[in-house]
Design a protein around this nucleic acid. Structure first.
Lengths: 201, 201
DNA sequence: GATGCCCCGTGACAGATGTCAGGGGGTCAC
DNA sequence: GTGACCCCCTGACATCTGTCACGGGGCATC
């Protein structure tokens, strides 16, 4: 039997996945959690072979949870199952020690097979996504640029961002301008959107 | 037997819901679709009693799909099952003739009961959401304002938006200004974010 | 020590943006 | 037919934004 942990903040999705995977004779869902920061504890407590982890969860990023499991030295293998196939997510997940990465568009009948391969020691990555990730290139932004872009992403004025980060307005504008140039966007908002889609911020 | 149609663009979620609902003896999933614009055809073809429809789908809004089913005169009752509990979504769904509205945070073991109640003729609405909806107020935007705001939301320039909607740049700026005023936002992007969170666009 | 990169800041410029006043046209309800 | 809306457009204005040139300081690496 392959023991599974499910981490997803949407109850219906989690329950659905549990029902789906329980149809397989060799799979056993031994625990479910609804928050990223509960993953590690559940892993140590229930000792699953594979943890299926969503990225965007209330209460902690799934990638952080993956990193925590990896750092703990647990033999549990983390399989990211996420809505958003952003190249940056894939890269960050792999850096965090994930053993697999699939998007929720994956056909339902393939999930069990992916779980088995991950449990068997393989690394399983959505092939289309892997290509995107290579094509998308690496993050050209500096730490400050990321920070400023993130702060400005939802429409805050330059003055607000400057006050928030304890910078002069001119400096904020310079960082934004630089980020806009690097992303080849038309303005800060398009730049923020691009950076987010690529998983840079 | 209650006949069900599932509409969700994420294969894993759809498959999970199907597995979950198939555990119930009185429920029968007779069809699945992955696009909003395929809902109506599937309804006429398979004649389900209840259609579970996601809102945010590739290939057509679930609310539009609900409206189409309602307009067709089909006896099929539409139950919106969505990630985002935005007040405006609820209102729009109800206007489109939805018979129920639940978020994906709903406990998995309650879904079947909701489906039965909807099939039985009840209107079932997430209670917390209904309260939000009443508190959130109604959409003050005009059709044009919504359209312009949506087009400008991801960073397109005024010129681009104007060309896209066949308007003069000045008119676009006037609509945007009006929308900004109504949402009490600082700029178009903050206005777009606010309007989206409230389900207005 | 020189070079390179990043950070922080200033000043200046063109162009974009948000706002306002004003005008013409359409539709709908009273 | 008179308002009350909404739509579309114009022109003008102050402000914000994106860009550039320039400087100083810190911290690496060679």
């Amino acid at each position: 039997m392959i023991r599974l942990l499910l981490a997803d903040d949407q109850d219906l999705v989690r329950g659905g996945l549990a029902a789906l995977l329980s149809l397989e004779r060799d799979l056993d869902v031994v625990a479910e959690v609804g928050r990223g920061d509960q993953v590690l504890r559940a892993v140590t407590e229930h000792e699953p072979d594979v943890a299926l982890i969503d990225i965007e969860m209330a209460g902690g990023d799934g990638i952080d949870a993956t990193a925590a499991v990896t750092a703990s030295g647990s033999p549990c293998r983390c399989l990211i199952v996420t809505t958003f196939g952003r190249p940056g997510y894939l890269r960050r997940a792999m850096e965090a020690g994930a053993a697999g990465f699939v998007v929720k568009d994956t056909p339902a009948d393939q999930l069990a097979q992916v779980v088995r391969r991950v449990a068997g020691g393989e690394r399983v990555v959505d092939p289309a996504l892997a290509a995107d990730s290579l094509a998308g290139g690496i993050d050209p932004l500096t730490d400050r640029e990321r920070e400023v872009l993130r702060a400005a992403a939802d429409g805050a004025s330059v003055r607000t961002v400057a006050a928030q980060l304890h910078l002069s307005p001119g400096t904020v504008r310079n960082h934004l301008s630089s980020a806009i140039g690097k992303t080849e966007a038309e303005n800060r908002y398009a730049a923020a959107r691009l950076a987010r889609d690529r998983g840079w911020i």
